[in-house]
């Protein structure tokens, strides 16, 4: 804490204006912007700016964060209109500012920058995102060896950290929250394409509000901080599902 104070005092008198969306249930009828002046430190991410506000300027500000290294996926917010991980987005990217920070689009706002992700969690579990095995009870020490090719087939989709930036970037989801959405479908594909998986997710994916709701805007892929490419996962499953519908005997 004293480190920060020292650094801020010594570093500069330069500051950047941060406009933060505030929503206090029972107090605000709708979100309003509140402005703060934050020291513009070269190595500060937007999240550091928010923590500075919370620690020094306004303890009532609410937001989610945890790892500060782009792994936990909890600090996703809309920064100047774009969904970003605030721990991986530097204040200096925005020059003289101001930087406008809003909660992720497409989700109900609980308070300030905190959104309700229950809808996503329900969608995620609906695609059965785990390895499904049938007809065996192997010992806990059993190994399932995979070749590098088998690993490569799904590895990209396994990088998802459930940060929800792709949902916020997707106009289809923002306009119609019934859409199953990019990350859930990409994670379904992560298991579909895994050589160890014996499950079938056709029933949850071959639906109007699932892969067929996607119109291939492609912004989920641009927003993804982990290069998962959900847009590709969805288009690939469209082809799979279409071929399975036309050729009933083909399983994958």
């Amino acid at each position: 804490m004293t480190d920060t104070t020292e650094a801020v005092r010594r570093a500069s008198t330069r500051t950047i204006r941060v406009e933060v969306s505030r929503y206090r249930p029972g107090e605000d009828a709708e979100p309003v912007f509140q402005e703060y002046e934050v020291p513009l430190m070269a190595d500060w991410a937007v999240l550091d700016g928010l923590n500075y506000i919370k620690d020094r300027l306004d303890g009532s500000l609410s937001f989610r964060w945890s790892c500060r290294m782009g792994v936990c996926g909890s600090c996703g917010m809309n920064v100047n209109g774009e969904p970003r991980l605030t721990c991986g987005t530097f204040l200096s990217e925005y020059g003289e500012g101001p930087v406008r920070i809003e909660p992720l689009k497409g989700f109900p706002v609980i308070r300030d920058l905190v959104v309700d992700i229950d809808d996503f969690l329900a969608k995620l579990s609906s695609v059965r995102p785990w390895l499904i095995r049938e007809g065996e009870e192997p010992p806990l020490t059993a190994e399932y060896a995979q070749t590098p090719e088998q690993l490569e087939a799904y590895k990209q989709y396994s990088m998802c950290i459930n940060c929800l930036l792709c949902y916020s970037a997707c106009p289809v989801y923002v306009l119609d929250p019934d859409f199953l959405g990019p990350a859930a479908i990409a994670l379904a594909q992560r298991y579909n394409l895994d050589s160890r998986d014996m499950g079938d997710r056709f029933d949850v994916l071959n639906l109007e509000d699932s892969v067929w709701g996607c119109t291939f805007v492609g912004e989920c892929t641009s927003a993804c901080p982990k290069h998962v490419d959900p847009a590709e996962a969805i288009q690939r499953y469209k082809l799979t599902a279409a071929l399975r519908s036309v050729l009933p005997w083909s399983r994958r």
Binding site: Y23, P25, E30, P31, E82, V109, V115, D118, P171, V174
Partner: peptide
């Protein structure tokens, strides 16, 4: 459930 949900943005296609 609940929380604040903004109205539909009629000009979403012009936002980016």
């Amino acid at each position: 459930p609940g929380g604040y949900r903004p109205r539909r943005d009629a000009f979403w296609f012009a936002r980016s």
